[in-house]
Design a protein around this nucleic acid. Structure first.
Lengths: 209, 209
DNA sequence: CTTCTTTTACCTGATATCAGGTAAAAAAAA
DNA sequence: TTTTTTTTACCTGATATCAGGTAAAAGAAG
């Protein structure tokens, strides 16, 4: 069986580069190349596609939303995301929206080949550098960020649930003024302007739950 | 080479079950079994370990934090998470904290074997059911939740950056009162009590960025 | 046993949010 | 073209947050 494959990237040079790599694989057939996500959405309505390799940074519609849209209608299409540089949260978002894998464009030919075959086989795949990106914040990101104390975490959690200072005080059997102090200490510790920014910060850095 | 393996689970019966499965694998050597994470942390300071299979729901310290702690000191140890039931965000958190894979306990022997070998080989692995869990919310979660309009998304993003109503108005060249209206509409649309709860909701459902 | 961190608690004033209402122009969808 | 949604804008009052200060008791760490 030959896998009908589509490449989406807004840089024509990158498209031809990837296409060049893939022609060597005898069961991957490149049926179409696109420079925008909108054109791709039209195409897959009328044509059978097995595999999509897509850049994440696309004009008009970004790769994450594009992947989500495609997977809703065509869950069987295998979608692999690509980008030049990347960050942890972007990769995770892509996977959470149905992506079957993520490759950095500087990956070797062997990595590309490996990842594509494994993704077709039903696995969720990452190129080497992506793997280090998603599991490395441990040594940089998280070590320099001071941790929440137990009580602070309790209060942050209730804040994220929309509770007011008074409600939190009631929940934890504390004085209103105590909760107010804790909240202010947390805001100062991370230099956040208000609770909204704090919650966004804590969630993005996996510091809650 | 034999991989020195440790199993951590607070249910002794589960430990022996997994141990039974793994004795058939001739390059996996089970060197220790623990019922708590604290005991494990002590052990790995003095003993060489290659692979850890750990339950996510553990007393005292949970699996995600345990994984994070271990990986900070011993990044080369391969850690695979396990649980009976699971949800998307938990799996993603585990991976983001350095986990090399996640298996549901109802996985078949072959799945266990496959995942373990691939994880040792440097891949990030998921058992079949986990794969469906992390990419399926598309059909349930996201379809019934109304979307943010473009302007609402702009405002939500600025709110998550800690901006006040006035600052947002200035940034977007709008009236203070307009921004106030948008913010109220967003809160009502998702039935949120305040901006803190809103931001938590939007981030958890991948509705920002 | 001393030191540092955490948790608890109080006071005040300025500013911001939240909840209720209304409404018209602009844009998108039918 | 008509209808619906989105974006824009205004008014008011009650309540909550934020920022500044202080400080004692309890617990953890050295």
């Amino acid at each position: 069986m030959r896998y009908r494959t589509v490449i989406v990237d807004d840089h024509p040079i990158v498209i031809s580069g990837i296409a060049g790599l893939l022609t060597d694989l005898n069961n991957i057939e490149i049926v179409k190349k696109f420079e925008s996500g909108i054109a791709l959405l039209d195409y897959i309505e009328d044509h059978h596609v097995d595999l999509i390799l897509m850049d994440i940074f696309l004009p008009v519609i970004n790769g994450v939303d594009l992947c989500k849209t495609i997977k809703q209608k065509h869950p069987k299409i295998v979608i692999i995301g690509m980008s030049s540089q990347s960050e942890r949260s972007l990769v995770m978002q892509f996977i959470q929206n149905g992506g079957n894998g993520y490759i950095l464009k500087n990956a070797s030919f062997d990595e590309f080949k490996d990842c594509i075959y494994k993704a077709i086989d039903g696995e969720i795949v990452f190129s080497e550098e992506v793997k280090t990106i998603i599991s490395q914040p441990l040594s940089e990101d998280l070590e320099r960020i001071p941790a929440l104390s137990r009580r602070e975490r309790d209060i942050a959690l209730l804040l994220s649930q929309g509770k007011s200072t008074q409600e939190i005080a009631d929940d934890l059997f504390l004085s209103f003024l105590t909760v107010q102090t804790h909240r202010r200490n947390i805001l100062q510790k991370y230099k956040m302007k208000n609770v909204a920014e704090l919650i966004a910060f804590l969630l993005k850095n996996n510091m809650m739950n």
